[in-house]
Amino acid sequence: MLKYSELQEGQVLESLKKPAVTKVQLVKYAGASGDFNPLHTDDEFAQSIGMPGVIAHGMLIMGFLGEYVMQVAGATAEPTNFRMRFGAMTRPGDDITCSAVVRKVYEEEGKHYVDLEVKAEKAPEKVVGSGQATLRFF
């Protein structure tokens, strides 16, 4: 659980390793998100446009980072801003690890905030998504 008074800029937070992405998961995510681009669910289609097979929705990766950020925040803080830049492609079988570094700890209008630099990697230095989350303490 995050404690504002203990946060330091540059601090590395405990990471979250997600189970390997599966094709069934991509079908579920397509249904839940409403993104039915066959690139994510139909191998034949993906191959027809030159991909080795289906790839994960970029937003699923942001979903992993969202899970991670909310886990870090727990019941002590809530997100006010969350953004991500899409990186390398994620394929079924990839294990994604989410990690964060404390970028800025500050006070604004009597409220405490922390900016986290977040990253999702399928292997060390193979970034599939990177961005920032701002949390406001309750």
């Binding site: 997600k18 189970p19 998961q25 579920k28 995510y29 249904g31 839940a32 998100s33 937003m59 699923l60 942001m62 979903g63 992993f64 969202g66 899970e67 950020v69 909310m70 886990q71 019941a75 809530e78 997100p79 969350f82 309750f138």
Partner: peptide, 28 residues
């Protein structure tokens, strides 16, 4: 679908006891 088992999204009783005061949706 995300594999996110945070009870804030599914457990009314748990969520009611947090500063959110009730269930919410995931950030994405």
């Amino acid at each position: 679908a995300i594999g996110d088992s945070n009870p804030l999204y599914v457990d009314e009783e748990y969520a009611a006891g947090t500063p959110y005061g009730g269930m919410i949706a995931p950030p994405t």
